[in-house]
């Protein structure tokens, strides 16, 4: 029973890895945005803005935000890619196999989160090469754990959306109305200490905020939101999203 479940999860993970490997050029492309942000936006920011603590707002502040953003994009895409599986038929091949749908969804999630973490790590490395100093090695390792939890959350959300959305036109809509606000309202690009009330409300209701803050804490050793709070925030988010995704996927009509 357990072996069979593990086998299903592994198979789905393997497929994601094979596909990921085939789309190397896409991955290089996805690193372009964070790279340009770090190289051009960072110096621009640090020459113009100061953190409330008085230090310049620079690359090291941006890096966790960019990692959070990459995790958001790739995880959401990973979950939503079920729509493609549906449109191009492969989903039927999975659903007719004698395996549990829940473990199929889980395997898909683990596969998606692996690719997200790989992208996150690549950004970590790029930022390091550019000259950003990380707080400590255990912190860097811990940040990967945060990427995992955050990734699971957004994949769960993606799977839930994919199970409800019929076509990929609907998907385009959702992606543009979901991702940009999530990124811009997350404190990825600005400090969240002195925000006006309404904005503060939105920012604190955004799961990505807690993810970015947790990564910031791990990499730089300080954050506005205490690490316990942000860790609890993303863990709860991941748990409920996976539950929701698994449930909706289970009842999806093909």
């Amino acid at each position: 029973m357990v072996r069979k479940a593990a086998n299903t999860v592994y198979t789905m993970w393997l497929r994601e890895m094979l596909r990921f490997w085939r789309s190397k050029s896409r991955i290089v492309g996805s690193l372009a945005t964070p790279f340009f942000f770090l190289v051009f936006l960072g110096p621009g920011f640090s020459s113009s803005y100061r953190l409330p603590t008085g230090q310049p707002l620079d690359n090291s502040f941006l890096a966790p935000g960019l990692i959070g953003m990459a995790i958001l994009f790739s995880s959401l895409m990973g979950g939503v890619s079920i729509i493609w599986d549906k449109e191009f038929g492969f989903l039927k091949e999975i659903l007719i196999a004698p395996v549990s749908r829940f473990y199929v969804a889980l395997g898909k999630a683990v596969g998606g989160v692996t690719t997200s973490i790989i992208q996150g790590i690549l950004i970590l490395i790029i930022a390091w090469l550019i000259g950003i100093k990380y707080h400590s090695l255990p912190g860097v390792v811990a940040s990967m754990g945060i990427m995992f939890i955050l990734g699971i959350g957004f994949i769960g959300l993606g799977i839930a959306l994919a199970s409800k959305i019929e076509s990929h036109e609907g998907f385009q809509m959702v992606m543009s109305f979901l991702t940009m606000p999530l990124v811009l309202l997350s404190g990825a690009f600005f400090p969240i200490t002195n925000l006006p009330g309404w904005l503060k409300l939105l920012v604190y209701a955004n799961p990505l905020t807690y993810g970015v803050e947790a990564i910031r804490w791990c990499l730089l050793g300080n954050s506005t939101i205490p690490i316990i709070t942000s860790l609890a925030g993303i863990t709860l988010f991941a748990f409920f999203m996976m539950l929701l995704g698994g449930k909706l996927f289970d009842s999806m009509e093909i």
């Binding site: 094979l18 191009f88 038929g89």
Partner: peptide, 9 residues
């Protein structure tokens, strides 16, 4: 009736 292969693999 319609194809269900993963065409990237």
């Amino acid at each position: 009736q319609d194809t269900t292969l993963d065409d990237r693999l």
